[in-house]
Design a protein around this nucleic acid. Structure first.
Lengths: 352, 352
DNA sequence: CTGAAAGCGCTAACAC
DNA sequence: GTGTTAGCGCTTTCAG
């Protein structure tokens, strides 16, 4: 530790008071150019480094934003986090990360985070938080932002899950499929629930009765079920239905779609010839796998979340804002839309 | 902000001195059980929250560890970060994240991080840092750990890149391939360089002359080149060689391998029938894609990195430790090893 | 414009 | 055991 140089050292060395030193360090205009340069030089010569926590204590603010995220259940968070990180550092804040696996951990975390002055703002990702926690948070008056989650009391950035699922399902229906199943994630997850609703609405709008029997979630429900294995198992389950199996699927996430494809391939079934599918997320590999999917502007969501949070930090009374992004349909080959009119896929269309 | 309750408030309310309050709050044994409970109760009643930064200032320690990572150039970092996060919170530290895109950003970051007392330790990921920065760091005496990078002056956790590449290439060679090419990342990246060396050594050991002409890095060298597009373009380049193209490849990362497969498929070439390949990393999707690859224990690396760092924080004089993990070969189908003796892949072996 | 002094909230050494 | 006091290093009045 470079000998702990404090403003006292540089004050003495420069022959001024600590107040003046603090002023030049903080670019306070009321300092003579001469003193300013003198102080600046001494500071540099002594390679002075302000003590972060002393500043934070005196200023009564942390210059820190924290993000509480389900660590890391998916690629989705990583992308959003990139946006968050970029913006946070642009604003000059520190980003502290908290990973939680279960909802109950959130509570203990919130308690710690609420330590007075610890953070200037918090972002919660995809968390279904207990009402009491929500109440505590609200009462604390701490700026809070929700990402991929919604609550009336806080700003939120989310995706129109229901709408996206509706679009995806409708796309499949319009391609002529009548029996469209759904591979879903854990129904306790809000996005999963909303996507299910969208799927259902699309079906009903086309006069197709909804049936629980063609909606599955893999047994392997580690975390929220938005994972490869869950998709794999759900599809295996469908395949076991034999001839009754749907020939088209809306799948609640790309990663699950990949699992489903693996299951299909293993059983000798091909996409899109034997079964068509559309995913959700548009993660990087979706393009590679030629998966038709619903794109979410993940990075943008992260950026916006921080912008909103920072805005609220400076204007606490600002009215609560809920922003919803509409996912867009990215047509690739897994849905079969690019098949030739003869009903066989074009050379490039055959998935993988 | 719940009215800023301080230890003074609770001292007054409980009829004791702030010293005592501090003691019970810090579980200092020298307090009568009676006073202890009394103080505890008052604290709870007032829902007291210690001020983090006041504590840190007084204690002269930050209880914070920071991680500087190329944000997020790949899945690799995310996995390691999961291990890091888990361990950090287990130790009760805060994790602050810094994302850097270019090497020069590292310097300015280090300057900020070195602000006296800001962090108790830093982890640098895959960074090739200027010597001067290294020197500053060393001089600062701050506990530092390197992940996926090595320097004589600091603890490090890394992977035997050369060895892994050697194993991968040898595997291909032993499968009977004589013309084994390599798709590499940016040669400025240390891992990329090391993997190249391992590849080369394997070749030469089998008496096959090394040739620059069958080692490529995609033009699209965003970041360090460990990305899908780089693999895609490199392979397109190879395909352009026509009949001279190698029929087997060691590819420096899985994600690049996926890009390469996409390029191959686009041109009507199949894996492993037309070209065999083995990747590096064993990211989640590798299993799904049936990619033979070299597995790195990413999560474990993160865990170990923190354990080491924490150890060094308490024993600064501990001798410097370099830990190297040997990647293990995971044989799946992309290398063709699972083909039937007739030379055609088994039903399940055909990639995708 | 600038020096002195009073905090910011907590820890820890020191008496009683 | 427990109260008192002196910092931790910086910001911010408040005089002058």
């Amino acid at each position: 530790m470079a000998k702990k140089i404090t403003i006292y050292d540089i004050a003495r060395e420069a022959g001024v008071g600590i107040g003046t030193v603090s002023r030049v360090l903080n670019n306070n205009p009321s300092v003579t150019p001469e003193t300013r340069t003198r102080v600046t030089e001494v500071a540099k010569r002594l390679s002075y480094q302000p003590h972060t926590y002393a500043q934070r204590l005196a200023r009564q603010q942390s210059e820190t934003i924290s993000a509480v995220i389900p660590f890391f259940t998916s690629y989705f968070f990583m992308e959003v986090l990139r946006g968050v990180q970029e913006k946070v550092s642009e604003y000059g804040y520190d980003l502290v990360l908290y990973g939680v696996e279960h909802a109950d951990e959130v509570e203990s975390y919130v308690a710690k985070a609420l330590r007075r002055g610890k953070v200037d703002g918090i972002l919660f990702f995809s968390m279904k938080m207990p009402d009491r926690v929500l109440a505590d948070l609200k009462e604390s008056n701490l700026p809070v932002g929700l990402v991929d989650a919604v609550s009336p009391s806080f700003d939120s950035i989310s995706v129109a899950n229901s709408e996206g699922a509706y679009t995806a399902t409708t796309h499949l229906l319009e391609l002529g499929h009548r029996k469209v199943g759904m591979v879903n994630a854990q129904s306790m997850s809000t996005p999963a629930l909303e996507r299910l609703q969208g799927y259902r609405r699309a079906l009903e709008e086309q006069g197709i009765p909804y049936s629980d029997s063609i909606v599955r979630c893999g047994k392997n429900t580690r975390h929220d079920g938005f994972n490869r294995d869950s998709g794999y198992e759900a599809m295996l389950d469908f395949i076991a239905m034999g001839p009754d199996m749907p020939n088209a699927f809306f799948i609640s996430s790309d990663i699950q779609a990949f699992g489903a494809i693996a299951a299909l391939n293993e059983k000798g079934l091909r996409v899109p010839e034997d079964v068509a599918m559309v995913g959700f997320d548009d993660i990087e590999l979706a393009r590679l796998m030629r998966l038709t999917t619903m794109r979410q502007p993940m990075f943008q969501m992260g950026v916006l979340a921080i912008e909103r949070l920072v805005a609220r930090m400076s204007h606490p009374e600002m009215e609560i804002l809920h922003t919803t992004f509409s996912p867009t349909l990215i047509v690739r080959e897994s849905c079969g839309a690019l098949m030739t009119s003869e009903g066989t896929p074009s050379a490039k269309s055959r998935l993988r």
